[in-house]
Amino acid sequence: MSIAERLRSRGLSPKKRFGQNFLVDVSASRAIAEAATTPPGGTVLEIGPGLGALTRPLLERAAKIVAVERDRDLVPLLAAELEAPIAEGRLSILEADALTVDWAAELVGPRPHVLAGNLPYQITGALLERATGLADRIDRAVFMVQAEVADRLLAPPGSKTYGALSVFVQAAFDVKRLLTVRGGAFYPRPDVDSAVVVLSPHRPPRAKETESFREAVRAAFGARRKTLRNAWRSLYGWSKDELEAHAAEAGISLDARGETLAVEDFARIAAKKR
């Protein structure tokens, strides 16, 4: 039975407010599951299982899965279809918002501890922010995101797609593109392509995401066309002379623009705040 038929049999349809585009490509699902569970075993927190396209191949390889689903209409459907692994204690389904669930508290079980899921576009940035905050406590994250988001996550300094999201994620993770997934792999079909990215935590991180670090990054990219001299003119309440001195000590030219700086450059300027 197709996804459309399964939904119709319950009087349901995809919900735009939840950004529901269900993955129907079996090979893509298996590739994501394999990336999330190599070596086999471990505990996976799955974000947005939907109708279980990824949950099923994950169950073939993971020791334990906690699936967080916001749509209350899908939870009983998924629970009925996956009754056996739930009874065995290998799968638990939480009806909850992935933005508010305590991910660390749910990732209790054998390692590796992995985050996985097809991220809704509307909240992709917020979910990635939560993942970076948990980087020191997980072993991997495997996410399906829109292709343009994957480009931003992978972008090097100086490129057009390099921005604040690139810096924050690259500070915490090594980012790899696993595969591109075309629109036809989903129901309903989206207007854009997607990509699967594998995020592996840096040990230690390239930069500690302190408030000072975040402030420097956001100021630099909030005024993208300006030089750092202008973008950072009120940074940390420094005077013009203090900014000049601290930037020189950090080896940063204030005539440069924010998109040319590497993660470590932002870390060095942030470290100058006392």
Rank of each mutant, 00 (worst) to 15 (best):
M144V: 10
K240C: 03
P39S: 01
E264V: 14
G222S: 02
V149P: 13
L7R: 03
M1L: 13
L128E: 07
D73R: 15
Q20Y: 04
L77W: 14
G42I: 00
G184E: 15
A135K: 10
A126T: 09
P49G: 11
L228T: 03
A216C: 04
V24A: 13
R30K: 14
A63L: 04
F221R: 10
S27I: 09
K64T: 10
K15S: 11
A105N: 01
R224A: 04
P112R: 03
A36G: 05
E211Y: 01
E46N: 08
F173R: 00
T100S: 14
F168M: 14
R152G: 13
E244D: 15
E83L: 13
G89K: 10
G163D: 11
P14Q: 11
A105S: 14
I138Y: 05
R8F: 00
T132Q: 13
E88V: 08
S27V: 11
G183F: 03
V142L: 00
G237W: 01
A62H: 00
D191W: 01
A53M: 07
G158C: 06
A220V: 03
L128C: 01
F173G: 06
D241I: 07
D174M: 12
S29E: 12
R8T: 11
G42C: 05
N21R: 09
L7H: 07
D139P: 11
F186K: 11
F173N: 04
H113T: 11
D174N: 13
R6S: 13
V181L: 00
T161M: 12
E211P: 04
E88N: 02
D73G: 08
V68R: 09
G125A: 15
S13M: 12
E46K: 11
A31Q: 08
K176N: 11
I65S: 05
K64D: 03
G184Q: 14
P57G: 00
A63T: 14
T38F: 05
G258F: 05
E259G: 07
K272M: 15
L228K: 02
E211K: 14
P49L: 12
D97M: 01
S92I: 12
R111M: 05
D139Q: 03
M1A: 12
S239L: 00
T227L: 08
D97F: 06
Q170A: 04
V142S: 06
I86A: 09
Y236K: 13
A270Y: 02
A79W: 07
V101I: 15
L128H: 05
A4Y: 07
I86V: 14
G117R: 10
F186N: 12
R214F: 01
E264G: 11
E46I: 01
I252K: 02
L59K: 09
E242C: 06
A105P: 03
L127R: 04
A84W: 08
S234D: 15
A267Y: 02
E88T: 08
F266D: 01
V68T: 08
A155K: 10
H113G: 13
V114M: 10
V175L: 06
L51Y: 09
D241R: 13
F266L: 09
R218G: 10
P57D: 07
P188S: 12
R229M: 12
A126M: 06
V198W: 05
W232T: 00
L179Q: 13
E81F: 04
S239W: 00
D191E: 15
G11V: 08
A267R: 00
S200G: 06
V24W: 11
R90H: 12
